[in-house]
Simulated assay, not measured.
Amino acid sequence: MGALRETLDLERLDDLLFRSGSAATRNTRVFGGEVAAQALMAAGRTVPGDRHVHSLHAYFLRPGDPGSPIVYQVDPIRDGGSFTTRRTVAVQHGKPIFHLSASFHRPEEGYSHQPPKTERPEPEDLLPGEEVIAAADPATREWFDRVHGDSPLEIRFAEELPRFAALRGESAPPIQRFWFRTHETLPEDDPLLHACAVAYASDLLLLCSSVAPHARTLDGGDFQFASLDHTLWLHGVPRADDWIFYDQEGMWAGGARALCRGSLSDRSHRLIGSVVQEGLIRPVG
């Protein structure tokens, strides 16, 4: 079980230069959401505290090495009257592995609307993700432990994962829905930390939804997969240590790529974030 605040506690080397510790993971590459969250944290620590992140746009360039620190170089693109823009490049072994542009906005009043409420189970009515996976096959248990065993997030699945249908040789709709929250309580007066936690979670399992109609799993050995680019819009200040519902959909696939989207809402059905990601799903063999 990872500690999110420790993961996001970057060492400040200079005004615009930060460094992470080594990633605590059993994977051979750093989880993309971790790099995104750290890059956003680096950017946010150069921004006035009265401005909150409202969007990030990122490209995954190279896999991150979990055994080495990552250096984050922040470029102060613009400080305007209402908006502040930052660019962060993550560098490891002398090469850029990740590029992020983020925008921060001073809170303002304005018109407001959002999509209607959707039906969903409450998190208290669902089993912890670990209990659901414990009843699965050994390969799924190993997969979940590898991708989630060190995660700082608690997960509860709203319905059967498409992965289970694929292991039965069945296709499924490209939809995944689950609740998440951080294991640890986060300070209420640190909106940047909560935003970075949501950025971390926004990459979780999203690309898996894209292969459900094809009765495949990404770790089945017949796919080369990776996140290519990732966008997150935050529609307000989230609380990542309270339950957030993540509704994911694999919208399109073709040309060895897939486009996925997701919506993030809190317990009151308030839409707090929107996600779009394109990923590589290249059949091999």
Rank of each mutant, 00 (worst) to 15 (best):
L56E: 05
W252N: 03
G149Y: 10
G110R: 06
L153A: 14
T25M: 07
H269T: 11
R120A: 13
L40W: 02
L232T: 07
V53H: 09
A135R: 15
Q176G: 03
Q38S: 13
L192G: 12
E278G: 00
Q277P: 01
H214M: 04
P283T: 05
D75Q: 10
H99W: 10
I244F: 08
S101T: 15
A215S: 14
V91H: 01
T25L: 05
T46I: 11
L10M: 02
F60V: 01
Q38C: 05
M251T: 05
L271Q: 12
H113N: 10
L207Q: 00
V30Q: 14
W233M: 01
R270K: 15
H148G: 07
K117Q: 15
F83D: 02
L271H: 15
R51P: 09
R156E: 14
A195T: 13
D15C: 04
H54S: 04
R78H: 14
V47D: 13
R120K: 15
V284A: 00
A199R: 13
L56N: 02
E11I: 11
P63W: 09
E34T: 10
I244K: 06
G279Y: 00
F60I: 03
W233F: 14
S151A: 14
A215K: 05
D203E: 08
G64Y: 11
G285L: 04
L186E: 04
A24C: 08
G149L: 08
Y59M: 03
